[in-house]
């Protein structure tokens, strides 16, 4: 395996931070109302699951 360059903390945590924010928005949205708010909530909390699926599929490809 070719060792890539050492990454900065910001680079290491960029995706986790984005997923954390998406999760937070998802957790809060459905509390605020129904309909559209529920939809936002589903998308926000689906984000971490989709990223896991992406990582697994990329690995297999």
């Amino acid at each position: 395996m070719s060792r890539s360059a050492r990454r900065s903390l910001a680079a290491v945590f960029a995706v986790p931070l984005a997923l954390g924010l998406a999760s937070l928005v998802g957790l809060v949205a459905a509390l605020l109302g129904d309909g559209l708010y529920d939809g936002v909530s589903w998308v926000g909390l689906a984000a971490p699951l989709l990223v896991v699926a992406w990582a697994a599929l990329r690995r297999r490809a």
């Binding site: 395996m1 890539s4 050492r6 990454r7 290491v12 990582a55």
Partner: peptide, 16 residues
């Protein structure tokens, strides 16, 4: 402890 492990890996790396 996640940070030092991931210093040289792309996010989502799975070395299966």
């Amino acid at each position: 402890v996640y940070a030092p492990f991931m210093r040289r890996l792309r996010f989502g790396t799975l070395r299966l």
